[in-house]
Computed example of a mutant assay.
Amino acid sequence: MRINGKYSIGILLTFVLLAAVMLYAFPVIRMATGIQHITASSFSLSRLGILSVLLIVFLYSFFIEKGPFLLKEEKKYSIGFYIKAVIGLYLVCTIGGAFINVLLQFLLQEKISNKLLQLTSIFKNNYFLIIFTCLTAGVVEEFLMRGYIQPRVEKIYSSPLLGVIVSALLFGILHSTYGTIGQVIVPFFIGAVFAMFYKKYSNIKILIICHFMFDLVSLMIMNSMDFKHLSVF
């Protein structure tokens, strides 16, 4: 099989495995443990499932593609650049995401995701789970969406723009399990911003740090808010 065919299978494998974990992790955990509702323990197990996807894709790239996991060579930057890049990305994603949320609320008057409400309750004052969740999201999603999928789509179709769009689109679709339009469009926007940054600067570490920080701040704010005020956030 030619290398582009292997890349195509790898992209499909990555998306299918991530979608399967997000859709079926809790039903499988429920069957195996008897835990009927989402708890801190069952959620932690689901995160291990997501980490296992990263391991499987890494092994696929090593044994089947027989090449590096990251097709783009990591560029080195100064500490000052790291700080400015993380802050800049965070502000763009926060302000842009807030604007999109307000616009969607005005146009659609979406109700808050029931899944998000459930997760808010298990994160309450559980700082280890918050940090573990943010760390797994930052590492797995950036390595797979930007590090693995984006450059392979670009290689297959010889189109940097298509690499950005496809990786951002898949990133948004994977968040559809939250059940609202906003939880698809905002991640798509963030995914596009991150993908454009990765295309230009080729540094996955900055994206992992920013992703971690974005999720951490969001979850800490949720942790400090009453449920009745969550829709505003």
Rank of each mutant, 00 (worst) to 15 (best):
K115Y: 13
K115F: 15
Q118I: 12
L119I: 15
T120A: 13
T120K: 12
T120F: 09
I122N: 12
F123H: 04
F123Q: 05
K124Q: 14
N125D: 14
N126M: 10
L129G: 08
L129N: 07
I130Y: 00
I131S: 05
T133R: 08
T136W: 03
A137T: 15
A137R: 06
V139H: 07
V140S: 03
E141G: 06
M145F: 11
M145H: 04
R146K: 14
R146N: 10
Y148N: 05
Y148L: 00
Y148H: 09
I149S: 04
Q150M: 14
P151I: 08
R152E: 11
R152N: 13
E154S: 14
I156H: 11
I156V: 14
Y157R: 00
S159P: 07
P160Q: 13
L161N: 11
L161Y: 14
G163L: 12
V164H: 09
V164P: 00
I165M: 12
A168H: 11
A168C: 11
L169W: 12
L169C: 08
L170C: 05
L174R: 07
H175Q: 14
H175S: 13
H175I: 13
T177S: 06
T177E: 05
G179M: 02
T180H: 06
I181V: 15
G182W: 10
Q183G: 04
I185S: 07
I185K: 06
I185H: 10
P187A: 15
P187F: 15
F188K: 12
F188Y: 15
F189M: 03
G191K: 09
M196G: 05
F197K: 07
F197C: 12
Y198N: 02
K200T: 10
S202F: 10
N203E: 05
I204C: 12
I206P: 02
I206E: 02
I208E: 08
I209Y: 13
I209R: 01
I209N: 00
C210W: 01
C210I: 01
F212V: 04
F212T: 04
F214I: 04
D215G: 11
D215C: 09
D215E: 14
V217Q: 10
V217D: 06
L219S: 06
M220G: 05
M222T: 01
M222V: 07
M222G: 01
